[in-house]
Design a protein around this nucleic acid. Structure first.
Lengths: 147, 147
DNA sequence: ATAGCAATTGAGAATCAATCGCAATTGGAG
DNA sequence: CTCCAATTGCGATTGATTCTCAATTGCTAT
């Protein structure tokens, strides 16, 4: 999907909710589309400042819930307590192994787990929007270091 | 396991790390053992104050990492951004469905998912300590309400 | 086109959980 | 019993996020 397409999708989403597509929101969206992997709010803000377009940090924070609801980004787990995000398009869903020793994040995906998750949701009449799975422990390097 | 047993386990854990078993840590441990389900730091602190034993909030915060590492409590997901805990004994491991609309939390456990998680860890040489899985979406009530 | 109004913005103040600094205290190994 | 590193309390501090509010500005209906 092209950038233009994504912009108009976001615009439609806003419109449906009676919200406006402002230049600021456009700039924030562009910045996000230019970031491939995970990013923190501070990363996003840095990107925006770099591109010489000044936007208030408050506006960035205010826009994030819209981007989440509009299906532009999703939350991803991050080493510390901070919340990280990634754009949904181009980042296939995956789960995470998180090393509590060195902070390393390992992505993985297991189809069987996904299937069972759907089954669990069905059995509870639960309508899933998305999920996050984080397995904490020691990565190979840290595990052997501790021995 | 008796309360005394758990105290001495925690005491052993501390001792192994060259740390002390202080009255404050004893009070905090007792308070946790008296709470059955999930609790936030503020809940724990309230419990402690209730029992007329004054402890600094800072001490509570400082003790939590020890309780985590010592296997007394584990983190559990909570509706908002706050971190919640529960004592491990008496609370079998389970995963969570979290309704983003009403905040309801539904516990579940799926053995097959657990097995696959272990398999994934093996294949990455990853030594798991624990995991958290949260599936966000709409619970039955909220899903039907939205229609 | 244009008026009108609700939505939006920036900037700084405010919040709130969590952490820190430091002087006084204390558990517990030897 | 001694001694020292670990611990505590309390207040100050941090740092992320949210809020306030006056000034702007999309956007819908005319």
């Amino acid at each position: 999907m092209t950038k233009m397409n994504r912009e108009s999708r976001f615009r439609d989403f806003l419109s449906t909710k009676g919200l406006k597509y402002t230049p600021e929101r456009g700039i924030i969206l562009s910045a996000i589309l230019s970031i491939k992997g995970h990013f923190l709010v501070e990363d996003l803000y840095a990107h925006i400042r770099q591109s010489e377009q000044g936007i208030s940090l408050a506006t960035v924070y205010r826009t994030i819930p819209l981007l989440l609801e509009g299906g532009v980004v999703r939350e991803v787990p991050s080493p510390q307590g901070k919340v990280a995000y990634e754009q949904i398009l181009g980042n296939e869903h995956h789960d995470h192994l998180l090393c509590t020793s060195c902070g390393k994040v390992i992505d993985f995906k297991d189809d069987l787990i996904e299937k069972r998750q759907d089954a669990v949701c069905d059995s509870h009449g639960f309508e899933p929007q998305g999920h996050q799975m984080v397995i904490k422990g020691y990565c190979r390097a840290c595990a052997s270091k501790n021995k």
